[in-house]
Design a protein around this nucleic acid. Structure first.
Lengths: 228, 228
DNA sequence: AATTATTTTTAGCTTGCTTTAAGGTTTATA
DNA sequence: TATAAACCTTAAAGCAAGCTAAAAATAATT
């Protein structure tokens, strides 16, 4: 599940991002409204968390822009003020929910779950590329040959790959998304998981493979000449 | 007994939800009309409590939509105004009962009991999965081997599992549904009840089991290879 | 008030996911 | 073709999630 977090206060942003990652979300963190807008233009997210007070473009502006552009991704507004005006403004502009700071972590998680469940639960429960399917609910990677229940990190890596087939994803991007910007894990860990995934793909007799592009990253490609 | 509570005023919603949970209902709380509609689409409830004044879609609209979709779950309308017009409007649209705010807790409970008794008592008095049955009236979990009377929390956990066999239910979802998301109980408590239930299932010689998916949740699965 | 039933916490244990480490392989470049 | 850097693979150590028994706390009954 992919989330965009737009919150300018760094320490709060880091704390939230870490919590979300611990709860198996892939998080992109941005620190101002303009950044948020440009991230929303390229990436596809399952949910967006917007602070109201941000430099360059406030949360409501970002929200209005994305709705105007036809982006219906569910949005949770964060606001320090609990004034009715702000709430109404947010909801009128197309927010799905709001939360006033300070908030309980549990409540944030519950609201994100509710928001993403209601809006998008059904459509992308299964990702398929080639003869391989990934169930985003049960974490099962399967083909007609059988299936594996993926572990967490493994799943997130495969999810990123399968959501962008043929697209190059850099090692740093994996690290940033899944482990977080300031994680002290070695880059090596990505290689290890790539290796695990490849082994499973072979066992599943997949007609797709994870191709490495030296110095650039990885991409999911179809196999045309299975010489077996 | 599963209820959907749609009430946008947070503090009131929390209070009602807590009271209902204390009275052995499983409560899903939502805070606007759209959420209510999408919850009604997926879940199956024994009763619905709808506030009239809500953002995005008011209670009457929600009610009309669900009736139009053929959903005959009993509905109790909550309204702050005591005007006849509102009441009539609600009942005309297919509500089973109404209550004007403020109301006495006892009255709310009595009305919910009455409403659910008349309309839906019959259909799902027994849930069965595999060789195991759960009586939702007497709280008895049974097989041909014998039966246990489950305690409250135990029952609610088993009910959630048996209503969605093979489906993954996250630990947080259990917490949210049964304890409420603002409960301060440790997540641990879910593990404890899972353990109790498993022990009983084994004693009942069940051909179903509760499977854990690390970091994801639990699911009720059939056992194919009982090696005994 | 005492007993019993239920719910929650505690704590030690087990399991298996995650990460590191270490040695191997490939590819680019001198 | 030698070297280095990037990448691959496996095994094992480290660590967190989950399990369970038992005790403590709370609620319901007698």
């Amino acid at each position: 599940m992919r989330l965009l977090l737009a919150e300018d206060e760094k320490s709060l942003s880091k704390a939230i991002a870490e919590i979300l990652r611990k709860n198996n979300y892939s998080v992109d963190a941005v620190y101002d409204g303009e950044e948020a807008i440009s991230y929303l233009e390229c990436g596809s997210y399952d949910g967006v968390i917007l602070d109201v007070m941000m430099p360059k473009a406030d949360g409501i502006t970002v929200l209005k822009k994305m709705r105007a552009a036809g982006n219906m991704t569910p949005v949770l507004i964060l606001t320090a003020k609990s004034e009715i005006d702000d709430k109404v403004l947010g909801l009128d502009s197309g927010a799905n929910d709001y939360l006033t700071k300070p908030f309980a972590v549990k409540e944030l998680l519950a609201r994100i779950r509710a928001m993403t469940r209601t809006q998008s639960a059904q459509p992308d429960s299964r990702l398929t590329v080639g003869n391989i399917a990934l169930d985003t609910v049960t974490f099962e990677l399967s083909s007609e040959k059988g299936s594996y229940r993926l572990a967490n990190k493994e799943f997130q890596m495969m999810e990123m790959l399968m959501r962008n087939p043929r697209n190059l994803i850099s090692t740093e991007r994996f690290m940033e998304r899944i482990w977080g910007y300031d994680s002290d894990a070695e880059i090596n860990v990505v290689w290890v998981y790539i290796s695990y995934l490849r082994k499973k793909l072979v066992a599943l007799d997949a007609n797709i493979q994870i191709k490495a592009a030296r110095n650039a990253g990885y991409s999911l490609e179809e196999i045309y000449d299975k010489k077996a």
